[in-house]
Simulated assay, not measured.
Amino acid sequence: KKFDEGTGYRSKSFLTVPLKNSQDEIIGVIQLLNATDASGTVIEFSKQIQPLVEALASQAAVALDNQQLLESQRKLLESFIELIASAIDAKSPYTGGHCQRVPELTKMLAKAACDDKDGPFKDFDLTEEQWYELHIGAWLHDCGKVTTPEYVVDKAVKLETIYNRVHEVRMRFEVVKREAEIEYYKALIEGRGDPDALKAELDATLTKIDADWEFIAKANVGDEFMAPEAQDRIREIAKTQWTRTLDDRLGLSFEERKRKDRKPPVPTPAKEYLLADRDDHVVFRDALEPAAQPDNPFGFKLNIPEHKYNFGEIYNLCIARGTLTEEERFKINDHIVQTIIMLEQLPFPKHLKRVPEYAGGHHEKMDGTGYPRK
């Protein structure tokens, strides 16, 4: 009725056939209006035409069902990709929203290139499929960050790993102060010097320890630049010793114990340095890592640090700029390596075959100074 009112058409006879999908659900209808005879008079639809229309409806239902399935799969793919991007953004408050902003910025840049009519991009254009391919690539550009440890991405101070190890270092300074006080009282009891001179020596020692601690604490925060003189002072402070009386191989994880066992245990009581770069601070790199192979199949050209991680305390505190070691900076940059490896394993259809190229190229530069393929 509404159709007739809106068009001025008058419907008198109808033949309506439902469109059903493979689950026998109605997904639409085919409706024929106003059958006519040879003279043009509207008549009822004959029963003979019904099987033909039903066959047509069946074919239309298959086509419509396929289209709806493709659209639902497309929406599922996009939702899943956006879910991954949102999860990556949620990992770090410092990079929150990045994965969602990049697709928008990518579209803006691509549109500007397409709109260029006189400049170097005057012949550049994208088809609808290419726009979609670029859209998917932009959303997946940082999917490799799922492999990046949060403490590396969020490393706010130099001694931070899973926790800020400056608290452990501070307790060593406390131990050194207590040992100085104990030595002072032992000297008094044993009469090993003038009490006033011993007290003055203790006060000077405690003052120096406090000053050294404040310096180490400030160095831990990191800055735009650490002077070589400051690094030398860290190494000098590190030479201070304290006495460990407990077994340092108890309560360790399997991996920690493996690293500790690189050297034989030291009997207690044992003298330890206030700060140290120990063998067990080093995490070796797996030689089987794809990026570590000089002839890797992905074409990566990377300057790979010798070790995967180095948790050495002196090594970390002497970081000249910021809070990241060479190994940690490589690990952050490694997210693009992982992105490429992950995406190139996926069976993208023909119209999305360049997604790995788009996603994996966002750190490359025209002058060849980018990474990981240069």
Rank of each mutant, 00 (worst) to 15 (best):
T245M: 08
V102A: 04
V157A: 00
H362P: 03
N303V: 05
V153H: 00
S46L: 05
F254R: 12
R249C: 08
D210L: 14
L76N: 14
L33R: 11
A60G: 07
E174S: 13
D334E: 12
F215L: 07
E129M: 13
T106S: 12
Y9D: 11
H362A: 04
D223G: 08
N316H: 06
K350I: 08
D115C: 14
I209E: 03
E306Y: 11
D115L: 13
A270S: 13
D125C: 15
N66W: 14
V29T: 06
G222N: 01
K208P: 01
E174W: 11
P195E: 15
F124H: 06
R10W: 12
G361E: 05
P297W: 13
L32C: 14
A320I: 03
R178D: 13
Q59P: 04
S13G: 06
L15Y: 03
T148P: 00
D4A: 12
K47M: 07
A197H: 14
V153I: 10
E328L: 00
T106C: 11
P149Y: 02
R278Y: 08
A227M: 06
A200I: 10
P228I: 04
V102I: 10
I49G: 03
A57P: 03
D37Y: 14
I26K: 09
V169P: 01
F3G: 04
Y151N: 03
K47R: 14
I336G: 00
E357Q: 14
E183R: 14
Y94Q: 14
N164D: 07
V337R: 01
D223L: 04
A90T: 10
P93F: 09
E183H: 10
